[in-house]
Measured scan of single mutants.
Amino acid sequence: RRRVRAILPYTKVPDTDEISFLKGDMFIVHNELEDGWMWVTNLRTDEQGLIVEDLVEEVG
């Protein structure tokens, strides 16, 4: 499975499927959606939700 790491922190918009995260958080990518969004699991918090790919980098 594809893994990505947050390069910046992010605070979710209330009442959306987004998740908040810290710089350095690792995610497993489940689905890549339109307009650069990804459905992921945050490995630190075990939370699932949407993040935008501009805020993460690939992990080898």
Rank of each mutant, 00 (worst) to 15 (best):
R44P: 00
T16E: 02
V56M: 09
V40E: 00
R44L: 04
R2H: 07
K12M: 06
W39T: 04
Y10G: 03
I28P: 00
L8I: 10
D35Y: 12
R1C: 15
I28W: 10
P9R: 08
A6S: 07
V52M: 13
G24A: 05
V56G: 01
H30M: 12
S20P: 03
L50I: 13
I19T: 02
F21P: 00
M38C: 05
K23G: 07
R44Q: 05
E34W: 11
K23T: 11
K12V: 03
Q48I: 13
P9L: 05
D46M: 15
T41V: 09
D35L: 11
D17A: 13
Q48S: 11
N42Q: 07
L33A: 10
P9M: 08
R2A: 06
G36M: 05
L43H: 04
I28L: 11
I51F: 00
I7N: 05
D15H: 13
Y10N: 04
T41I: 08
D17F: 13
T16L: 03
E47D: 10
N42G: 02
E47I: 06
N42D: 04
W39P: 00
M38S: 04
I28M: 10
D54V: 10
G49F: 02
G36I: 03
A6I: 02
E57Y: 07
E47P: 01
T11G: 05
M26T: 10
D25F: 03
R1E: 14
L8V: 14
I51Q: 01
D54F: 14
N31A: 12
E58R: 09
G36C: 06
E18K: 04
W39Q: 05
V59A: 12
T41F: 06
K23L: 10
R5T: 07
G24F: 06
I7G: 03
L50Q: 08
D46V: 10
K12F: 03
R1K: 15
E18R: 05
W39N: 04
W37V: 07
D25Y: 02
T45V: 03
P9D: 13
E57H: 06
G60C: 15
G24L: 04
V29M: 03
R1L: 15
W37T: 09
I51Y: 01
E34I: 12
Q48M: 11
W39L: 08
G36W: 03
Q48L: 08
V29S: 02
P14Q: 09
D17Q: 14
D17E: 13
D35K: 14
D25T: 02
D46R: 15
D46N: 15
R3W: 15
G60Q: 14
W39M: 07
D35S: 12
T11W: 08
D35P: 07
P14A: 10
V13K: 14
I51A: 05
T45K: 03
R5H: 05
V59Y: 11
M38P: 00
I19R: 00
D46G: 15
E32Y: 09
L8E: 10
F21R: 00
E18W: 04
F27N: 00
V4I: 06
E32P: 07
R44M: 07
V13F: 10
G60M: 13
E34N: 15
V59I: 12
W37Y: 12
V29L: 05
R44T: 07
R5F: 07
T11E: 09
D46C: 15
V59K: 04
D17K: 13
G49M: 01
V56R: 01
A6F: 02
T16H: 03
M38W: 06
R3P: 05
L55Y: 15
L55S: 08
K12E: 04
E58V: 09
D54P: 06
L50F: 09
D15T: 07
R2N: 06
N42H: 08
K23Q: 11
S20Y: 02
G36N: 07
N31Y: 14
T16C: 05
K23Y: 08
G49L: 01
G60T: 14
W37F: 09
I51S: 01
G24D: 09
L50C: 11
E47N: 05
Y10D: 01
E53Y: 14
T11Q: 10
V29K: 02
E53H: 14
F27D: 00
N42V: 02
N42R: 04
V52L: 15
L43K: 05
V56D: 01
E53I: 14
P14H: 08
I19V: 08
